[in-house]
């Protein structure tokens, strides 16, 4: 994958400083200026000293508020991380972690991402997280959109904003779990002795009450003696493995195949099956559990041809 070289370098963590921040009056700041000029003209015309005094008080307040506005934003530390992987079509979630190591709270800070803005309130020496969502369409990694920060605290007369930053956070997007084939032994490559039948591996998984059909060698005699009733050992795991195989889906486009396989992975996991994945160039052995599911789906998400 060729990277666009003109894109600004990504960062892991930024601290907003003077170099990153700009400031201009807001629309309301301009209105306020008009009001100030009117007051000044009034003072000038009537030689009214105290009108001068108050006009200058308000002007000084607007100037001083520049420092407040800057101080409200300067020194915030921001880092970004992707949250859990999502399926294509869902919203990728990124969390922005912001830290304030100054002894005063910061309020009314806005974080702009794309055309959306999220508000941020940070207590003194506190940290806060903001969740940003981003639409996804394709599998693979999705980069976080650049973000910028702005604030018009405290009077709304001045707005400070930062240039935009691109964080090196990326969220994994699994293929959309979609396909017309349900997970059946015929569709997915299964080892014949396992799928659909009563799974009997050789790993002990627990005890249950004895059924007349249980083989006598599975009765846990020691435990039965203690609990006054017959208990049967249950075994599971090992034997029943579903193989989800790329090559069995020849009639589909590659992307559709990936979607189909993703669907099977999801289904197999929720049905508590043990499953493995065969892709051209990689094989993931049988297993189950959250981590296994993630491994399989990640392989599907990042698959890039033979």
């Amino acid at each position: 994958m060729a990277r666009n070289t003109t894109r600004p370098a990504t960062v892991e963590r930024i601290t907003l400083g003077r170099r990153q921040l700009y400031m201009l009056p807001t629309r309301y700041g301009l209105y306020f200026c008009v009001a100030l000029v009117a007051m000044l003209l009034m003072a000038l015309n009537y030689h009214n000293s105290i009108a001068y005094l108050f006009t200058f008080l308000l002007a000084a307040m607007a100037i001083t508020s520049m420092l407040y506005t800057h101080r409200n934003v300067a020194g915030i530390e921001i880092s970004a991380h992707a949250q859990a992987p999502v399926f294509a079509g869902e919203s990728a979630k990124f969390s922005l972690h912001t830290e304030n190591d100054r002894p005063r709270p910061r309020s009314g800070v806005w974080i702009h991402c794309g055309d959306r803005a999220e508000r941020l309130e940070l207590g003194a020496k506190d940290s806060a997280s903001v969740e940003l969502q981003q639409r996804t369409t394709r599998r693979g990694y999705v980069e976080m959109d650049p973000i910028a920060v702005s604030s018009a605290f405290p009077l709304g007369l001045l707005c400070t904003w930062s240039k935009s930053f691109r964080f090196n956070a990326r969220c994994l997007v699994y293929p959309r779990p979609h396909g017309r084939y349900t997970l059946t032994p015929a569709a997915a490559g299964c080892t014949p002795q396992s799928y659909g039948t009563h799974a009997d591996g050789d790993d002990f998984v627990g005890l249950r009450a004895y059924h007349p059909s249980d083989p006598p060698r599975h009765v846990h005699w020691k435990a039965s003696a203690r609990s006054q009733e017959l208990l049967t050992k249950r075994f599971g795991g090992g034997g029943g493995t579903v193989w989800l195989d790329w090559d069995r889906l020849v009639e589909l486009e590659p992307e559709s195949r990936l979607s189909q396989l993703a669907r099977w992975v999801v289904d197999a996991e929720s049905n508590g099956l043990s499953y493995g994945l065969r892709l051209p160039g990689s094989v993931i052995g049988a297993g189950h559990g959250k981590h296994h599911r993630h491994r399989c789906l990640k392989a599907l998400a990042l698959w890039s041809g033979q």
Binding site: N45, F56, A60, M61
Partner: peptide
């Protein structure tokens, strides 16, 4: 904010050029 504006206000008050006449008829 108001208290911190007072020094600036004083400077503006003392140094802002005053004019003799009126801008328009009083």
């Amino acid at each position: 904010l108001l208290v911190k504006s007072i020094p600036l206000m004083c400077i503006l008050y003392l140094l802002f050029p005053r004019i003799q006449g009126s801008l328009w008829g009083v």
